[in-house]
Amino acid sequence: MGKLFRKIFLVDLFQGLWVTFRNQNPKYIYTEQYPAERPKVAERYRGAPRLNINPENGETLCIGCNLCALACPEGLIVVTTERNEKTRRKELTTFTYDTSRCMFCGLCEDACPVDALELTQDFELASYTREGAIWDRQMLEEGPKPTRYRC
């Protein structure tokens, strides 16, 4: 009798559909509408490198100590400095960072004594050329500028 009831009123079918519709709740939708909506990454996210500048006078915070280059497992950071004859201090001339070989381990960030080099929340690093992946000092200070799409 129970079996017949289940067959006539399609109980099993509705039970199965209930599982389907239970998961249709907008709360459980996990798809991200990238690139129209960019995901919000964590505060500690290790993404594109940035060489911080002093916001007041626009001078770089980097003291050219070369510790990041020594800490990097891949040896992809090249820092060159020049000694200023007047102040007797080392001044940064070029800073090259090869993002194509970077594995974003964060060791350079940890090594930096003045918080000049930092891995930021930018994650769009694609480039049309291989040379484009090698970032110079200007690129590192400005950060990547990915295209913004409006949908």
Partner: peptide, 21 residues
């Protein structure tokens, strides 16, 4: 879907999802 929640914890903790270091 559930793995994503774990990866979010990792991302918040150390800044990477898969190769965490």
């Amino acid at each position: 879907r559930e793995r994503e929640e774990i990866l979010k914890i990792y991302e918040n903790y150390c800044g990477a999802r898969l190769t965490t270091h």
